[in-house]
Simulated scan of single mutants.
Amino acid sequence: MNEPDSLHFQSISFTGHAPGARLIVLGAVHGNETCGTQAIRRVIAEIESGQLGVAAGSVTFVPVANPLAYARKQRMGDRNLNRNLVPTDTPVEYEDRIANWLCPLLAQHDVLLDLHSFHTAGQPFVMLGPQDNRGTLEPFARAAEETALALRLGVQRFVDGWLDTYAAGVARRLAAGASSREANVHYGVGTTEYMRAQGGIALTLECGQHDAPTAPAVAYRAIHNTLRHLQLADLPVPMPAQQTEALRLYQVIDRDHAEDVFARDWSSFDRVQAGDVIGTRHDGTPVRAESDGYIVFPNPRALPGQEWFYLAKRSARV
Rank of each mutant, 00 (worst) to 15 (best):
N2T: 14
D5P: 13
F9A: 07
I12A: 08
S13L: 09
G16K: 10
A18T: 13
L23N: 04
V25H: 03
V25L: 05
N32T: 09
C35Q: 13
Q38Y: 15
R41E: 14
R42H: 15
Q51A: 15
G53F: 09
G57Y: 12
S58V: 01
S58Q: 10
V59T: 02
T60M: 04
A71Y: 02
Q74Y: 14
R79P: 13
T90E: 03
P91S: 08
V92Q: 15
Y94L: 02
R97L: 03
R97S: 02
N100T: 03
N100M: 05
P104L: 04
L106V: 07
L128Y: 05
A141S: 15
E146M: 11
L153T: 06
G161R: 07
A171E: 15
A176S: 04
A176P: 05
R181Q: 07
E182Q: 12
H186T: 05
Y194K: 00
R196Y: 02
I201T: 11
T204W: 02
L205N: 04
L205S: 00
C207W: 09
A217D: 14
N225V: 13
L227C: 05
L230D: 03
Q231M: 12
L232V: 09
A233D: 09
A233G: 05
D234S: 10
Q242H: 07
Q242D: 06
A246H: 09
R248K: 15
R255C: 11
E259G: 00
R264Q: 08
D265H: 08
S267Y: 03
V272D: 08
V272I: 09
V277D: 10
T280L: 04
G284D: 04
T285K: 14
P286I: 01
E290H: 13
Y294F: 08
F297M: 12
A302C: 05
A302K: 07
P304D: 03
W308R: 02
V318A: 07
